[in-house]
Amino acid sequence: MVNRHVIGAHYGLRDWLLQRITAVVMLAYTIGLIFFLVMVSGASFQGWKALMGMTWVRVFTSVSIIALALHAWVGVRDIWMDYVKPLGLRLTLHVLTILWLVASLVYAVKVVWGV
């Protein structure tokens, strides 16, 4: 049987770019968080509460969590694409990954805004 490969999905750049941009957002957030931990010594519960009480910190945190989810989506999807060949199984894994990431995202945002 002639094995005809279907190629040319006409996407790829968007995801690749997305992964780079989300990485920059996460890097900025991580540096900010480390800066807080070092500068505001003895990060107590009160300190955390005050920090997370500020709206801009909550927004920044939420954006970073969204960035993390998008970044993880591209990365994990690439792993499935590399190693899982059966189409049905791969598609199932893709869907499960999306569900898991969306659930984690919703829960994390709820925690950030629920303090």
Partner: peptide, 9 residues
């Protein structure tokens, strides 16, 4: 021709 998650990315 290369805009594809496999071929280039």
């Amino acid at each position: 021709n290369l805009e594809d998650p496999y071929r280039l990315f």
